[in-house]
Design a protein around this nucleic acid. Sequence first.
DNA 1: GGTCAAGTGGACGAGGTGCTCCACTTATGG
DNA 2: CCATAAGTGGAGCACCTCGTCCACTTGACC
Lengths: 221, 221
Amino acid sequence: MPTVPDTAVGLRADARRNRDRIVEVARELFADRGLDVPMAAIARHARVGVATLYRRFPTKESLVTEVFADQFEACVSVIDDALADPDPWRGFCAAIEKVCTMQAVDRGFSAAFIAAFPDAVDIERERHRAIQGFAELTRRAKATGQLRADFAQDDLVLLVMANGGIITESAEVAQAASRRLVAYLLSAFRAEQAEPLPPPAPLNLRDVLPSGGAGHQVPAT
Amino acid sequence: MPTVPDTAVGLRADARRNRDRIVEVARELFADRGLDVPMAAIARHARVGVATLYRRFPTKESLVTEVFADQFEACVSVIDDALADPDPWRGFCAAIEKVCTMQAVDRGFSAAFIAAFPDAVDIERERHRAIQGFAELTRRAKATGQLRADFAQDDLVLLVMANGGIITESAEVAQAASRRLVAYLLSAFRAEQAEPLPPPAPLNLRDVLPSGGAGHQVPAT
DNA sequence: GGTCAAGTGGACGAGGTGCTCCACTTATGG
DNA sequence: CCATAAGTGGAGCACCTCGTCCACTTGACC
C-alpha cells in the first residue's frame, strides 16, 4: 500500500514537499467542502501557484483520484475485515456501517465514490474487488438466514446512493443522520417477517449522475 | 387554485403566450436535467430571448419557484389525502410513497424541494402546512401502534434526503430504485419487534447543502 | 391605418471555473 | 561556487454562468 505513489519518486526535495502539501490540503478541502472546491483555492491553501498544482496533477480528476486512493483502499479492507468475522451478519452490518460513516464524514469521499471516474483504472480495480467481496459477504449472510433472501446486490448501491443524499452543513449532524438511516435500513434487511419488496432496480454506479463532481455534462441542445 | 398566477394577468397576448411557453419548457428541462440547466437554454427552447425570460422572472430562483409551485401544492394535498384515510398507517405509507415518487421522477423537483429557497414566502407556507399535516399523520399512526414509537419528525427529512440521493440517468430506473428504498424504509418504520435506534439527527431542511441548485456558496478563503 | 407603450432579442458586463504559457528562481551535483 | 535542469508563480486564455442594456418590433386601442 504505497502512500507514496510511484509518480512522486525522483522529485526534487522542495517539489516533493509541495506535492505532499497539495495532497494534504486537497484532502481537507474536499472533505469539508466537497469536490467542487476550485483548483485555485487548493493552490492558495497549499501556498503554491496553480502551475505547480497542474504540473503535479495535470487534471483535477487526477488530483481527486490521488487524494481518495487510500480511502478506496480502506473501503476494500473494511470488506476484508467483514469477511474475516466469523458471524457473517455482524460482518455485513459492520461493513455497511463503516463505509457509510466514511461517506457521511467526508463530503468529497461521497462524491468521489459515487462519481468514481470510469477511467481511473486502479480505482476501478479496487472497486471490483470490493464488489466481489461484498457479494461473498451477502451470500454468507443469507446462508445463515439473517439477511433476507431477496436482498439484491444492487441494494448496496441503493444504500450508498441514499446515504450519499445525507449531506448537511455540519459533519456531526450528517454522521448522526447517516447512522440512523443505516440502522433503519439494516433493520429492514433482516430476514424476520420480511414482507415482499418491489423488484430491485438495476442500479449501476456508472449511470449515477454526479451532483457536484467532475462529470460528463450533456451539452445543451 | 391559480395555475395562472396574479403576475401573469394584464400581459399583452403575445407576452402571455411567451410566458406560458417559458414555464412549460422550464418545467420539462428542470425535470430531466435538474435545476442547473442554464437560463439561456430555457430561453432558446422557448424560442425567446434571454431578456424576455428575465423580464418575466427577474431571477432564476423566481422561475424555479413558479415552476414548482403547483408541485409543492400537490405535496400538500398528498398529505391531506393521507389524513383523510381512515387507516392512519396506510395513509402514512401512501403519502411517503407518493412524495418519493414525485421526487424520483423529477430531478428538478427533488433539488427544489431540498434547496427550497428560504425567501420564497408562499412555498415556505406550503411547507409549513405539509409539515404540520405530517406531524398529525405521524401521531395518529403511532397511536394505532403500527408506526414505531421512536419514529422522529426529522426522520421524514432523513427519508427525503436519502431518496434525493437516488438520481440516475433514466427516470424509470430512479423510480424503481426509489420505490425499493421506500419499501425498505417503511418496513423499518413498522413497530413490530423494533430494535432500538441511534438517536434522531436534528435535521433541518434549512441546513441541507444544495447539490446542484441555486445555493449560498461559501466564498473561498 | 397610426400612435405608442409594451414587448423583444442579442450583444455585453461581471464573475467564476479549469487549465496553459513563459519569464523567473532555486536545488543539486560537480 | 557555478552551470543547469528542475521547479515555480501569476498573468492570461477559453469557456460558462447569471443577469442587464438598449435599439428595434409589434400588439392594442382609437
